[in-house]
Amino acid sequence: MIMFGLWVPLTVGAAALQTLRTAQQKRLTGIIGQNGAHFARYVYGAPLAALLVAGLALGGIGLPAPDATFVLYGLMGGIAQIIATGCLIHAYTLRNFAVATTFSKTETIQAALLSLAVMGEGLSAGGWLAVAIGFAGLIVLTTSGNRGARIPLSRAWREPATAYGLASGLFFALSGIGIRAAALSLPSGSELVRASVTLAAITAMQTALMGMVLLLRDRRALAGAFGHARGPAAGVGLMSVTGSLGWFLAMTLEPVAHVRALAQIEIVFTLAMTVFVFRERPSGRDYLGAGLIVASVVILICGDTAIG
């Protein structure tokens, strides 16, 4: 049975930071473009992650030595996260903030299936019920149009934003699997040490990979990230690395399917930002969808969701 452990506040905190970071990234896209806003989360986050690991080492804490397995899973998680974030940013250019985020949250179902297939970590009947209720909430939010009008689900699936949003969810799920597998492959270290080393290694890989791609294909994005928009870009990086540490540590402590299911609470944060920051009034269907997601989170934490 799942206990209310450290992974719960870590996941909720990471979800809140991700909401703030994504909103800032969306604004940054209008200043330096999609690629620049995307690159900012890695290039400004990687040095902070490296400083964290250096601080642990200077504090006398032994660091585990990564092996080939760690590098393989780290690359898988890092590249999948790059693709997922790119798809999500592109979805924002096609639909609004809440809808794009909603589509990406289908990762909860996809993470559960991938976690079961790749790592043998499944959910019991209670766990699957919680994920199903959360997914129903996502569907309600997805089909909610302006002023509460209902959008046919068949039409929603055909929109480009849907494809990018669902692809984002798939690659976020793959990223979670890779990150957890990389952290668990380390030969020693506490959960904090494993999460910190994994975060530093993966963000360094992501910075190098995406930096090389932009150097060849989009130097204007590089110039923007280091130029006039470096202040907001650095803010994106700070929120990203702090939130990522929470995700990495949570996924080191708990199976990916559970962490990603609880992460659906990000939709509630998104609605709150819509009301208090953007001053928009959600419809009744929006509140219904959010309520279903909250219910799924409560069932997940308090119900009998033992690993199957």
Rank of each mutant, 00 (worst) to 15 (best):
I31D: 13
R180W: 00
T305C: 15
F171Q: 11
G127K: 13
A163R: 12
L170K: 08
A182Y: 05
I301W: 00
M239T: 14
G178W: 00
W247T: 09
L245Q: 09
Q25Y: 05
V275P: 14
R158I: 01
R27L: 09
H258V: 08
L214P: 06
G36K: 15
P232H: 05
Q18Y: 07
L271Y: 13
T93C: 10
P9K: 14
G33L: 06
A125S: 07
A167G: 06
P282D: 15
G231Y: 09
Q81Y: 14
A49V: 11
A50E: 01
G122F: 10
A68C: 08
V118R: 05
G235M: 10
A195P: 07
L288R: 04
Y287F: 13
L292C: 11
T101Y: 14
D67P: 00
G59R: 05
L153I: 12
T93L: 14
G60E: 06
A130M: 11
L215Y: 14
L253G: 09
L199P: 06
R27W: 00
L184M: 11
A49C: 10
G78L: 03
F171E: 06
F172V: 06
L48S: 04
I265D: 04
G224M: 01
L20K: 05
G308C: 03
A295E: 10
S188E: 13
K105P: 13
L216T: 02
G169R: 00
D286C: 11
E280H: 09
F39W: 08
A208N: 04
G59E: 12
A233F: 02
V268M: 05
Y287C: 09
V297F: 13
A98H: 03
F226M: 09
W247L: 08
F276I: 12
F103S: 11
V71C: 06
A167E: 08
D286N: 14
G289I: 04
A250D: 13
R217N: 13
R279Q: 10
I179Q: 12
A149L: 05
I265K: 02
A50W: 09
R180Y: 08
A136F: 06
R230Q: 03
L58D: 00
T198L: 05
L94M: 01
L114W: 09
G308D: 13
D304E: 08
G224K: 04
L271A: 15
V53D: 11
I79A: 15
W128R: 03
G308F: 08
M76N: 03
L174I: 10
A161T: 02
V118P: 01
